[in-house]
Each structure stands twice: as structure tokens, then as C-alpha cells.
Design a binder for these strands. Structure first.
Lengths: 253, 253
DNA sequence: CCCCTTTTTTCCGTGAGATGGAAAGTGTTT
DNA sequence: AAACACTTTCCATCTCACGGAAAAAAGGGG
């Protein structure tokens, strides 16, 4: 009777995987079904198949499901996919070593910035920035650096979209954002000060690709804890940041 | 007519994803179908759905498929799944900083060692060791450290299995391996010298968990290029390695 | 200890939709 | 131009996914 309209077995299975990915530890069948919006019996069947192929791990004692080891195969494959974000890994590592700050790289995915590479700095401060993390474009320095390279209509579309405030300092006014991005465009790098996360400031630059490159545009960023690094100190790292972006561009040419 | 026996839409879709993960850059429909062992029209349909949900990326111009950004969600979720391999990240980072060598952590998955965490050393040498990589247990130090903690029957089953030689120096004789693992058991750490990859030697130790812990057992390892680090120098790092393993055990207790 | 609730697991009749061969469309090579 | 390889669309067949329901199992009080 009730049908799956544009919602087949494959989508449902993948939906369950994302549910398991987003909800910390181990979920039971019914909990997973509830969150994924599926009938319990369907979720049970799907989870069983996923477990048989070890994309999910099933704990027989607790009867809970979690992501399985095989999902790692995917992320490994992803790193070397579009001409390799891996090419950016070495320059990024050098940048982190030179500045002592955590360095990350990300791409624009819809209206979010997706973190695709991350290397921790030498300071004991560890920012929680795992690969796969998403943040709204307008609250991050990478996001602003990336949108500053976008054609006007696409940029305006983003401005017209949802602009949630993640902290009390987040810029959410379209006009102010437009101005800020214009500044980024002329200056060549972007900055954010506790607008995405209290206690964290960062600078970022987009990697300049040769014209016509249809490769998803990458941005590199340096982060710092406000208590350890002043704006001036962070700004002093900008030349190194830009050099890193240039280096990546030359490698992936 | 021809039916999918135990091979449903979900398995096929995931198979395509792994095919895309394992075969470097961009695959066309027919290439992917060939490798995955699917009819072209089925592969076409499945890839289309995967692309619609952005688990695969489709390049309209080249008509090639690659893994999409959403697969990163999975690996991110995996890191914090079984009580968190992420807890091991900090000790591992310290180990790498202290020794200047790349430090990695892995688990035993079937007869392979799966690399789940990796931090690069400070030397400019970069071992190619990405998370998600698999290696045969008997050719790696982590593998030997891990099997040394296994109950005898499970260990014997592994010994009876396939023992491929990945280099000319790989130990493949079951008797010799049994002896070697016995040595690992008494000594508390394992060693491998160009048996998995020419030019690389490594030491490893299993993380000692409290008895009864059903958590997949983790091993930590230090790798080095033979041209840069002698066996003696690497052995000198073993105390730090063992301390790191202890630290992880205490954190995840 | 038993009853009650919640969750997990099994079962099965129905029909939506997955399937794959074939043909059309597209671009590249000989 | 023709031959080839690949991508994309189409469609008639019949499989296998679907989910409600019931059974089984696991907790949770009192």
C-alpha cells in the first residue's frame, strides 16, 4: 500500500548510515528507525543487510548498531578523488609547522563549508575540527573566502538563503555580509573573529585555480584560540597562508 | 529473468561506492559496471541515484563518476563510534612529536590490519598511510602485536589462512610466524623490517584493555624509513610507544 | 515473581518498482 | 564514412521490497 516515492532501498540504507554517523554511540533498531523516519521492520531488514556487509557493526549483546569498519574505505577513496585534495596535505602541513597553528582546508558545498583536510598545530591547543565537519559559509573565514570567488548570481543566491547565527557575534545581515565579502575580494583573504565559535578566530584564503578549472574550489585556513593569539599575531601569518594557497594551486595545475 | 540472489539494490549501490573508492580518479558508467559486475543499465540507474544524493559526484562534461562529499559524513561518524578511537588521537600525536616519527593506530579486521588513525611525523619523510588503508596482518608490526592477544584458536585460524608475501622479505611460513608471535607475546611489542613495504620498518604494541572488554583491540605503531632510522634508533622509541599504549588504555577505561 | 511496557525479530500477501536487454543517442577513432 | 565504444532512455516482466501484525524477548516496577 504505502509506497516509497523516490525513496528506495538504497536511499533508505544510506539514510540509516548517516543517522548512525550523526547520533553518537550505538542505536537500537527502533531508535534508528524513528530518526530515519522508517518503519521498524524496514529498518531492521536494512540494518541487517548493512551489518552483513560490515558497513555497520552490530553488537549482539547490547543489540545496538554503529558504523562499521568498511565506511572508512569511502573516505579514503574520497581524499584522492577530484585531482586529489591529498596534494594539498603537504603544503598544509608545512603551513601548520611554520605558524604553529592548526591548518585546515575546505570546500564550499551548498551553503556550507565542508572541512576536507585538517592538520593540528604544534600548540597544545586542539581545535575540534574533524574532516567531514560542516559549518555555515557566512560564519567561517573559509566560507567567505570561497564565496568571494563565486559569480555574482550564485553569491546573491547564498545571501538570500538562510543565514543562521551560530554565535552572538555572527554577521547575519545580507548587506553587511556583501560588504565584508567585497573587502575579502580586494584584500585576498578573509577573517572571522568568534563568529562561528566563541573563543576561536581564523583567517582563510581561497586557492586560486587557473581560469576555467571546474574543480571545486579549495580554501585554506589558520585557526587560533583568542586567548592565545591576538588578531595582530594571526594577521602576521597571512603571508604564509597566501603562500600556501599559491603552492597548492601550482601543485594541482 | 536473471535475478539478484542475495544481491539487492543496497548492496549493489554500496559495491559501486567501494569500486569508486578503490579505482583512482573518475570512472565511466560502463567501467564501473564492469568492475562491480553489474549490467550497465543497472549501474547507470544506481549511480544516478547516488549522485542525486551526492554520495557520488558526477562530472557532466567528462561523464565520469567519483565519490561525493557526503561520504565524509560516514568516516567522521566512525571515528567516534566504538567508544572513540578519537581518544587515541592525542596520545598518538604526542608520541609522534616526541619521537619525530609518524605514528599510526589500527585494528584487526578479519585477516587484515585496518589503519584507523594516522599522524605524520616531523621528519619530512611522509609515509603513505591514510586512514582506511588495509594490510595483511602477518606483514605488519601492528598485525603481529594484535594477533598476539588473540585466543589460540583464532590465531591458528589466521595462520591457516592465506599468507601472501607483500615483499621478498615477508615471513610467510606459519611455523616461523608462530614463533615470531610468541616472541611478541613475551616481549610486549612487535617489529617488522621491510616485510610489508620495501624501505620501511616499524614497531608496534597492542593497547592493553581491561579484561572482558569487547572493544576491538587497538594497536599503535611507529614507522620509519630504513635510510633514515636504524633498527637501534627505532628500538629506542619502544618505551615511548609502550607508554603511549598504556595511556590510551587508561583513557578508554 | 508476575504483569506490563518497550523493543527486537519473524512472518507473509501484495504490488510497486527494480531489472536488464535492446535500441537510440553521442562522441571518438580508424 | 563507417565502425566502435560508451552513455542514456525505454519498457514489459516478475521479483523482491514493503510494512502491518503478531510473536518473542528484554527490561522495569511494584
Amino acid at each position: 500500500m504505502t509506497a516509497p516515492p523516490g525513496d528506495d532501498m538504497l536511499s533508505r540504507g544510506l539514510r540509516l548510515l548517516t543517522v548512525l554517523a550523526d547520533n553518537p554511540p550505538g542505536l537500537g533498531v527502533s531508535a534508528a528507525a524513528r530518526i530515519a523516519g522508517l518503519p521498524v521492520s524496514s529498518a531492521h531488514r536494512l540494518l541487517g543487510r548493512l551489518a552483513a556487509e560490515r558497513f555497520v557493526a552490530y553488537d549482539e549483546d547490547t543489540r545496538r548498531y554503529a558504523l562499521g569498519v568498511r565506511v572508512l574505505e569511502f573516505s579514503r577513496g574520497f581524499q584522492r578523488s577530484p585531482a586529489g585534495y591529498s596534494a594539498a596535505a603537504d603544503p598544509l602541513r608545512r603551513l601548520a609547522a611554520r605558524t604553529g597553528l592548526p591548518a585546515i582546508a575546505g570546500i564550499l558545498d551548498g551553503d556550507e563549508v565542508l572541512l576536507v583536510l585538517s592538520v593540528q598545530g604544534s600548540q597544545h591547543l586542539q581545535l575540534r575540527s574533524a574532516e567531514g565537519t560542516r559549518n555555515p559559509w557566512h560564519a567561517t573565514s573559509m566560507g567567505r573566502a570561497l564565496v568571494s570567488t563565486l559569480p555574482a548570481p550564485e553569491f546573491e543566491a547564498l545571501l538570500a538563503g538562510d543565514l543562521p547565527a551560530t554565535t552572538s557575534r555572527t554577521l547575519t545581515d545580507p548587506g553587511a555580509l556583501r560588504e565584508e565579502v567585497a573587502r575579502v575580494q580586494t584584500r585576498g583573504w578573509a577573517e572571522v573573529d568568534e563568529e562561528n565559535e566563541i573563543g576561536v578566530r581564523s583567517v582563510a584564503a581561497a586557492v586560486p585555480y587557473a581560469d576555467g578549472s571546474r574543480r571545486p574550489r579549495l580554501a585554506v585556513s589558520l585557526g587560533a584560540a583568542v586567548v592565545l593569539t591576538s588578531r595582530e599575531e594571526l594577521h602576521a601569518c597571512v603571508p604564509a597562508l597566501l603562500a600556501c594557497a599559491e603552492e597548492i594551486a601550482s601543485l594541482t595545475a
